[in-house]
């Protein structure tokens, strides 16, 4: 009962929203005509859906992996009190309050073929198409920049109070630097790192604005495809948009369930 105030709106929004999207994508809430259970919307959007899914999973995987790596390294350096700790702390905290759209715009100004880096290098003609090009480099970079700060924050918070004393204990038991990382720090850091990376992955998978601003024009990532179809003047494309949204939600749910299942198996979680 005590959790009801939090649980009721969460479940209501989630269930009602998803149910409505699912129903509309399956032809149960047509704009005109009789409701009829049909997978037509999924079939209509299938070619675009497959490429968009591949692209979105690629963007999410690449940016989450980068964010995990950079975030973990930053967290370890901050927690261990490495030289330049204050600067590092500041640098790792800055991306957190910056809105995604602002971060994406900055990344665009930095990486585009008329951007700051291209100008600094001086040869704008041979500058690779990082923004809107065939490879979503700028999208991955923008997400990785923003989410690495989030990963660093979560991991540093989980480690801050414990890692130093456990590492000292390991040292006086004969563990050198590498053994301390392998047998102590890594097992301790895995659960918060996995959780933070999974959140990053799911967020990136479903996030629209950065992919829209910096991503390839074609193929489109899932959220951009869904948004384009949903706002299309052709109102019959609405079920297709919601079919894309349902697939996106299903992928996010699958990633979450897989992460939780993996976390439950780790020793520290038990």
């Amino acid at each position: 009962m005590l959790v009801a105030p939090a649980l009721v709106p969460t479940v209501a929004v989630l269930v009602a929203g998803l149910a409505a999207a699912l129903a509309q994508s399956l032809g149960l809430v047509p704009l005109v005509g009789r409701p009829e259970l049909s997978a037509q919307a999924y079939l209509d959007v299938r070619p675009d859906l497959l490429t968009a899914t591949g692209l979105s999973l690629g963007i999410a995987a690449a940016s989450s992996a980068l964010a995990a790596g950079v975030g973990l390294l930053t967290a370890l350096l901050v927690v261990r009190g490495a030289a330049g700790r204050r600067l590092l702390r500041f640098a790792s905290a800055v991306p957190i309050p910056v809105p995604h759209l602002v971060g994406a715009a900055s990344m665009g100004l930095l990486l585009s073929d008329s951007g700051l880096l291209a100008r600094l290098v001086g040869d704008q003609g041979s500058w690779p198409a990082l923004v809107h090009g065939p490879w979503p480099v700028a999208v991955v970079a923008a997400y990785a920049w923003k989410e690495s700060a989030f990963v660093a924050l979560v991991v540093a918070g989980a480690l801050a109070t414990r890692v130093a004393s456990y590492e000292e204990t390991a040292a006086v038991l004969g563990a050198g630097r590498w053994a301390r990382f392998r047998f102590v720090t890594w097992p301790l850091v895995t659960p918060p790192l996995a959780a933070a990376t999974a959140i990053t992955f799911v967020y990136t998978l479903g996030s629209y604005e950065v992919a829209w601003l910096l991503g390839p024009v074609h193929p489109e990532p899932l959220p951009v495809l869904a948004q384009r179809l949903f706002t299309s003047p052709d109102l019959t494309a609405r079920p297709q948009a919601l079919a894309v949204a349902v697939v996106t939600a299903a992928l996010a749910l699958a990633a979450t369930v897989a992460t939780l299942a993996a976390l439950r198996r780790t020793a520290t979680w038990r």
Binding site: S165, Y166, T169, F183, P187, L188, A267, T268
Partner: peptide
């Protein structure tokens, strides 16, 4: 504090 490794 005993500081036993919690993952072992």
């Amino acid at each position: 504090r005993p500081l036993l490794f919690p993952h072992l």
